[in-house]
Design a protein around this nucleic acid. Sequence first.
DNA 1: GAGTGGTCTAGACCACGGG
DNA 2: CCGTGGTCTAGACCACTCG
Lengths: 239, 239
Amino acid sequence: MAKHNDIHAELLGRITSGLWPAGAAIPNEADLALEFGCTRPTVARALSDLVKAGLIERRRRAGSRVVERRAREILLTIPLVRTEIEAAGRGYGYHLLGIERAPGSARTVIGPGEALHILCLHSADGEPYQLEDRWINLRTVPLAAAQDFAREGPNEWLVRTVPFTRAEHILSAAAAGPEEAERLGLATGAPVFVIERTTWLGEDPVTQVRLIHPGQGFRLFARDIGQTAPSGRGQTTTP
Amino acid sequence: MAKHNDIHAELLGRITSGLWPAGAAIPNEADLALEFGCTRPTVARALSDLVKAGLIERRRRAGSRVVERRAREILLTIPLVRTEIEAAGRGYGYHLLGIERAPGSARTVIGPGEALHILCLHSADGEPYQLEDRWINLRTVPLAAAQDFAREGPNEWLVRTVPFTRAEHILSAAAAGPEEAERLGLATGAPVFVIERTTWLGEDPVTQVRLIHPGQGFRLFARDIGQTAPSGRGQTTTP
DNA sequence: GAGTGGTCTAGACCACGGG
DNA sequence: CCGTGGTCTAGACCACTCG
């Protein structure tokens, strides 16, 4: 229904189909407006959206070109672990394994101030699913000190309570250490999938977490960026 | 300079700062236009961009609300392996390990038709960096049959030559099999980080690839989606 | 039915930058 | 210089949906 979206989709098609390969020049706004039977701002909107998606580059006077894609960008969806497990039709379980006040260690971003260190396990149908090793900055989130995380995981509490302005994620594969392995019911050295996330509120770190999944059967699905139909959502499964 | 971008940023700030928490109602377009001293379409553009970023939901008559974020979306950049290695200041090396025509196996999406199966290794400063196990659908890409991939990897050739309309990615951690381990100079069972990518042109699969990295030291960095400053780009490193 | 979003048009002015 | 992108305004019409 939206004309600028139709135009966006049509131009996207010309790019992905190879009609306009990387580096190719795109007709100017006036010509496109004529072709599509609309006014220039409508075309401009479509082109502007293509720029945002990183598919074309525009320079005054020089015109618009299809960008040389040197890297592929994909969109990952990381749901709340409970949501994820329940969406798979499995029973969610939460176990607090340890909680202590401690200064942020050298390994953390939290720094030398007061911090809350929490270790907990999320399970699916009683089977270990994710080990969560979290630091919360008590100077940024003093409220956390009053929480016991016996029934509810710190992830859900934080999502509901504390805003953040920036987040960083690191994905990696690692060998399970002795303690991790025991918690997850694996052999020491077994492969695990690790998601590390740090969030900030302004300049202050809020929380830092290592989410550790058994490598066997854990997969992260991703979808493309800059495509028309955002119908297919990312998801995770454990076959 | 762009007023709709300023408004976008300001509203984004009100959301991420917690002023407008999840579920909160946002003033209607007319009021915002008054507040920002512009016309309604300008505000509409900013709000429309927030919808695209997945931060708000809008319904006629009901107004606009901050979306309940049940999942976190992050943007992953996966550069061409050569680019990635050279960007780290290391010397890129390519070795073709095997190439054969074969019907797509049961494990592949390619199906029972003719396919090209390629195994090759990308190295950084002579050290194994990524093992590439690729299938190319020869019915979709007949040109590939005429290529020997002795000097150039199939990834670069494909990126330059063949368009695609859809891509799927799966990330996982796994234990290296005996052959993989040997190729990568690891012990059998060592953790590896696996990226699987399949691309289609319309309904036809183009290529399917498993990219296998040694788990030790390989990390994938991701950045947030829907933020104002797209300055920080994702990257990968090998510390 | 009335209020809200959703979108387009027509016209305009400015900024930039290649020739 | 002057063509191109970049953006805003003012006004308009429609579609939906809640009360």
